[in-house]
Design a protein around this nucleic acid. Structure first.
Lengths: 208, 208
DNA sequence: TCGCTAAAGCTACATGTGTAGCGGTAGCAT
DNA sequence: ATGCTACCGCTACACATGTAGCTTTAGCGA
């Protein structure tokens, strides 16, 4: 994570024989641009986020931003890379139900409080870079969360052979559906309710 | 449904005292534009859909299209209105599980086969009109589907007091999540698997 | 420290998206 | 059939988005 080159599909230097320059200036440009993008996003929302605004805020020339990030989606993808703490671990609270509640509260917070997540979802419909970054992020998170299910099986809470991914999708998808697609009125108890339903379902062997 | 005026927030004629003209020419313009939009969408995909392209295809002047529909989202919202068959009824196949399977197969087909649905979802992040139309569409469909749950309760399949909306969201949200947000590889058995899980969960009282 | 060149700055241009205002056409009431 | 005006066509403009090609700056290896 946190690679200095956001446009990831470039061939390796060892292949091209060329030398990259991640040092001083490039790094400074990247930091200034990502800072500006995040600040703009937090202060004025996704709709206000354009390459030109970010360029002006950061003092970096607009053509430079276009060259390195290509579009707003690319910018957001890199912001996510920068922000994603690689040390993230799924909650381990002692029971499947409370683990799922904790996960869902994180998801809920991200979807109602963190502008980056929602902005990246919106951007993913227009930018391949944003879509790819989001997919990678979610794949990583769901993979890590399989531990929750494994532990629940070990404790004998739910049947062996439970499909971890199906369970986790069932636990989280309703939140995304309600908040992102249906845009329902916010309900603070939604994360808990959905988590409890899913835990009950899992105990009944619904994901075997 | 199928109102001749897509931009819905206008005051009623009885309030303004002005007389609308839904007749001949306006109706023809609307039909030609919506036809062109749908054809373009089917033939060349959402990314190719712009007001200018639709205007050219339809032979209607671009400023007219801008005036009446404002943006691509407005266009899609009206296409949805036109296409939504008001007579739609939820499946009634004799059991909760098979009803949910049938619903999910419809959702799956819409998300993998019908470009209008996916396009409208994408547009809903950029256009208030698209977002509003989509919300209205889904609200209507979920409302009608409560019949499925009511019948299941009547048959004694699931506990009385089961929350219909929560059940229906649980049954459908994973499809949207996988296909729209995660963009997973298509799996023809997904609708059935999710429906069965949800039916099992409902029987175990997960949505009480 | 000095040469090479990756990467940033800059100007100019091309295209896409959306609006303002005016004049013309045709739906509808009389 | 005739007048009123809703609605469409048209030109002209404003601004946003993105690219091409060149010049300048500065990172890095020798």
């Amino acid at each position: 994570m946190a690679s200095p080159r956001p446009t990831s599909e470039l061939p390796d230097d060892s292949v091209t024989g060329r030398t990259r320059r991640p040092g001083g200036r490039s790094a400074a440009v990247r930091r200034r641009v990502l800072d500006a993008a995040l600040t703009q996003l937090v202060q004025h929302g996704y709709d206000s986020l354009s390459i030109d605004v970010v360029a002006e805020r950061s003092g970096v020339h607009r053509t430079t931003v276009y060259r390195r990030w290509r579009d707003v989606g690319g910018l957001l993808a890199d912001v996510l890379n920068e922000a994603s703490v690689d040390a993230w671990r799924p909650p381990d609270t002692g029971s499947l139900e409370s683990d799922l509640i904790a996960v869902n509260q994180e998801v809920h917070a991200a979807l109602t409080g963190d502008p980056v997540t929602v902005a990246l979802i919106a951007a993913s419909f227009r930018s391949t870079q944003a879509a790819t970054a989001l997919r990678a992020f979610w794949t990583d998170r769901y993979d890590r969360c399989t531990d929750i299910v494994r532990r629940a099986v070990d404790r004998g809470e739910i049947p062996a052979g439970t499909d971890a991914r199906r369970l986790l999708i069932a636990a989280t998808a309703p939140l995304y559906h309600e908040l992102v697609l249906l845009r329902s009125a916010a309900d603070a108890r939604l994360p808990e309710r959905v988590a409890r339903s899913t835990a009950t379902a899992a105990r009944a062997g619904a994901f075997g």
